[in-house]
Design a protein around this nucleic acid. Structure first.
Lengths: 218, 218
DNA sequence: CCTCCTATACTGCCCTGGGCACTATCGGAC
DNA sequence: GTCCGATAGTGCCCAGGGCAGTATAGGAGG
């Protein structure tokens, strides 16, 4: 029997809200979890079956006219498994950001290319901020599809918006700074002020011993 | 001939700095790009060969005693290809954050479980902030292994640190807020203040600076 | 001098998950 | 009556993740 993955538990979490068809589950995953757990739609279709095999859900085969569909429902075991899963620490966060690689290797191109990449990041973050704003307005106005979930959703939505704001603020700052740099980026002055700020962030923390690990970039 | 991927260009970017052995390339990728382009070490060993096939790099087979090794070197075509790649827009950023799924579905568990998950996020972000601080101190003190790269590295490092700070601030805020919530999270009041702040981000794109250190809800 | 340990320098192999392509019916608009 | 988008999926290839394994180099310690 196929072992359950994080994606399985994400689906199980949705089933804990209400019963859904596989198609609806796939749509809902895309809608609400894409931003912190992106998965290929194709693979989501295999998850509910695994849940049934583990007796965490049941299927109900229906037909709409001639077309069949499967409605999945969480079981008591399923709710129990979900609660147990919430106790386990999750894997550390992981980010993929191709445009940042282009910033990282910008000295092998010219200043205009770096500015263009920063501009693209800024534009995307701006668009994203608009979407976040509309989302927040929608939730404030309607309370959302599942009002009992609004509290936790407001937490998660806040982090997403804050992360996007961080990218927006950074790209605006970086753009302005790079504007003052020479054409040959190898001779540009490093952002010392920013590094000094980062270097001071140890102060607000405990004197716990640190294992030697690497910082953001080496 | 295998097509080049983003990972290929990341390796090519490293080769544009200096020649490396495959082993060194793999180590360096892990060290410096893990945080925004994480890739399995195993697969990195296949990339330099692809670059040679495309004539963007050359190999030099050497031996250290009885042990063979391959040193890769970028070609003029390689530098050209790297510059061209810098012009193409990168794929949108993508985040995987399992602990956030647990926050998202927290209403199916109890308040203590949610607080524990927030605590874990906070602890990890705190540890990460210390690593970032040490990294910044190291760079300020030594200028790094490749001083001509310090300017671009300071940009990328700043974003990484800022993103971690956003998580740190958010998790601290969320922890305090959830503390005031009832046991049954379905009846908890949503973070309206925060949503209202996000909702307003449509209009003003204020001149954000690095010194903006406000938490999620200021 | 010998042993142990870690760093260097990779390769084999299985299988998960990403992603494109494809099928088919339903329901409402025009 | 026709067209289009939404509903409801399946088949299949292969890139990439990740575990395991091989072998030599070089320095530390006894």
């Amino acid at each position: 029997m196929k072992p359950l993955t994080t994606t399985s538990y994400a689906i199980l979490g949705l089933l804990a809200i209400k019963p859904w068809t596989t198609y609806e589950l796939a749509k809902q995953m895309e809608l609400s979890l894409r931003n912190f757990w992106p998965r290929a739609e194709r693979k989501l279709y295999e998850e509910p079956r695994k849940l049934v095999a583990h007796q965490l859900a049941t299927v109900q085969r229906e037909t709409v006219g001639k077309r069949p569909r499967s409605v999945y429902r969480i079981t008591a075991d399923g709710r129990q498994a979900l609660r147990a899963w919430l106790d386990e620490p999750g894997a550390p966060a992981s980010l993929e950001f191709e445009a940042l690689i282009k910033v990282f290797f910008a000295e092998h191109g010219n200043k205009q290319q770096l500015l263009a990449n920063l501009e693209r990041i800024h534009t995307e973050a701006t668009a994203r901020a608009m979407i976040d704003a509309q989302w927040a307005q929608h939730y404030l106005a309607t309370g959302g599809q599942f009002p009992q979930r609004m509290a936790v959703i407001s937490l998660v939505g806040t982090l997403q918006a804050q992360l996007n704001q961080a990218i927006l603020a950074w790209s605006g700052w970086a753009r302005q700074l790079v504007d003052t740099w020479p054409e040959d980026l190898r001779t540009a002055p490093p952002a010392r002020d920013s590094l000094e700020l980062i270097a001071r962030w140890t102060r607000h923390t405990t004197s716990e011993t640190l294992n030697r690990q690497t910082g953001p970039v080496s």
